[in-house]
Design a protein around this nucleic acid. Structure first.
Length: 255
DNA sequence: ATGGCTACGATCCGTAGA
């Protein structure tokens, strides 16, 4: 089973690239973030024609997440149960024997801002949700845009980013707390090329300079991690016409 | 020191992303 995550930065604008990438990469399950549309504007039929069922938690203009799957999706749950939040950032579904959570974690804007405080509160709620899900499901995968670069090697210029939002100590501690529910960062279970990133700024030729961050992640509990064969980033997609600022990030699990 | 691009929604600029 190939499981991927991609922040598409508008599903309407990115549909052609998404269809091209699906045909090329042949993933079985895909978590999408930043749909920027309500379910009514979601291209369900086009994706069905490409062979994928969709579960959608949409929102106008901002946020919005979906899970695509070739196999049927069941036990769909939107948002973080018990956490009051108007922003559509979370969607869970079961595919085969794997519980899949799609997450679009808050950006945080700037350290100390109101949005930063929201980001930390949101991560605490996610942590509790993951702990509960892990207790309920033998195999758990959490995939999405976490908006945290876990270590300095996940940052193109750690000195320039020091203390900034996405790398600040409280955000990295919040990331660590997610792992401590019993999850592993699949990407780091393999030798990986240095300076592998999943996001590059649209400005200042960020992609051409490889001025990026690794902020899109796939977390697995130990049972799911035992099936892990490969992990990577489809970096080329960031160089396509009219790209998202994120590249698809994926893992292969043994069947 | 700032903004640099892209998407969106209601315009011809503000908000947001990271």
């Amino acid at each position: 089973m190939k499981l991927a995550t991609w922040n598409v930065n508008s599903i309407k604008v990115r549909l052609p690239q998404l269809l091209d990438w699906l045909a090329q990469a042949q993933p079985d399950v895909v978590c999408l973030q930043e749909l920027k549309t309500e379910a009514a504007g979601y291209p369900r039929e086009a994706l069905e024609a490409a062979g994928y069922a969709s579960a959608v938690n949409g929102q106008k203009t901002y946020n919005g997440v979906a899970i695509l799957s070739r196999a049927p999706l069941s036990a769909t749950v939107a948002d973080i149960p018990g956490f009051e939040d108007a922003q559509k950032r979370v969607l869970a579904a079961t595919v085969g024997d794997v519980r899949v959570l799609c997450v679009y974690c808050p950006n945080g804007q700037a350290v100390g801002s109101e949005k930063y405080e929201y980001k930390l509160r949101w991560f605490a709620a996610l942590r509790d949700y993951l702990a509960a899900e892990r207790a309920q499901h033998p195999q758990l995968a959490v995939a999405g845009d976490f908006n945290v670069a876990p270590e300095d090697r996940d940052v193109h210029d750690p000195k320039a980013w020091e203390g900034q939002v996405h790398v600040s100590a409280p955000e990295r501690a919040a990331w660590q707390a997610l792992l401590e529910t019993g999850l592993q960062d699949s990407f780091r279970l393999f030798e990986q090329p240095e300076k592998t990133f999943s996001w590059w700024d649209y400005r200042r030729m960020g992609f051409r300079r490889n001025a990026g961050l690794r902020i899109d992640h796939l977390l697995l509990n130990s049972f799911a991690a035992g099936r892990l064969e490969r992990a990577g980033v489809d970096r080329d997609v960031r160089g396509w016409e009219k790209p998202s600022d994120h590249a698809p990030t994926w893992i292969d699990l043994k069947d």
